[in-house]
Write a protein that binds this DNA or RNA. Structure first.
Lengths: 143, 143
DNA sequence: CGGTATCCGTTGCGATACTG
DNA sequence: CAGTATCGCAACGGATACCG
């Protein structure tokens, strides 16, 4: 009676916000909110390319990744992969061979994250045509 | 026959990855993938606090936000709000009064983004207890 | 093959002081 | 009240060269 689904959704949303907010405030000194702590390592210049390539091909070697990601330097690929590994998104497997062979793949966590990030990306690609801030982006897409 | 829901999901996921990947590569020079382009401005030290406060209280003035976000300087609040406004997440309304009054609220886009970010945060809060990289995080939560 | 080491420019952020 | 101006530091990313 008078209480709509939308109302209930709002209440749930606000409770969630309060919970997250409490966590966030206890971590202010670390420089990032908890969402940032997880997402930031995936939002630099190269991480998403690594994640999505690994999500697509499942297993790739260092050199294969390097070839697939146009313009990345060996240093940045190493840094990016190490960070993704440290955060539990990517698993690294080194074989004791000559020449050396190292394979990378997503963990379950990394795969789930990739799915969720692709959902998010899919959602806001629809906004590019509407929002002024992303106009330049659209122009390039159309080319 | 033999084609499971999981298989179909995987196909859809991979098609989506290809699509996003094409977009991303055409924007390499800009330094961020499209997901990053939208999310990065929300993942610095302060943006999420602004977004979540505005999602919770709906409308807040500059000074109110400043009081609610512990430790933020006027400069960083101004910078953060301006960036959020430029990206279409936040609407700014200035009243011609003395003393001046300015109100901030989320746009529909900003509200939807806040919901999605809170979903994401809710999901991975469940991983903090499992992943080594986030152990230090858990310790603080328990305090 | 799979990385490191080094240097260097840019950006982000904080602190403080000031203003229409 | 709602910001801006200025300064300074520290972290990040890029380019290049080198190594087990």
């Amino acid at each position: 009676m008078g209480v709509t689904d939308a109302d209930n959704q709002t209440v749930v949303f606000k409770e969630r916000l309060k919970k997250i907010y409490r966590y966030s405030q206890s971590h202010l000194s670390e420089g990032l909110c908890p969402t940032g702590k997880v997402l930031a390592p995936t939002l630099d210049r190269w991480s998403m390319f690594c994640l999505f390539n690994l999500a697509y091909y499942e297993t790739l070697r260092f050199g294969e990744l390097r070839k697939k990601i146009d313009g990345i330097s060996p240093r940045m690929l190493a840094v990016t992969l190490r960070r993704l590994e440290e955060h539990g998104f990517v698993a690294r497997k080194a074989y004791s061979e000559v020449p050396p062979r190292v394979e990378y793949r997503l963990t379950d966590f990394g795969l789930e994250l990739s799915r969720r990030l692709s959902d998010l990306t899919e959602w806001f690609l629809g906004y590019f045509e509407k929002l002024p801030a992303f106009e330049h982006f659209n122009e390039k897409i159309e080319k």
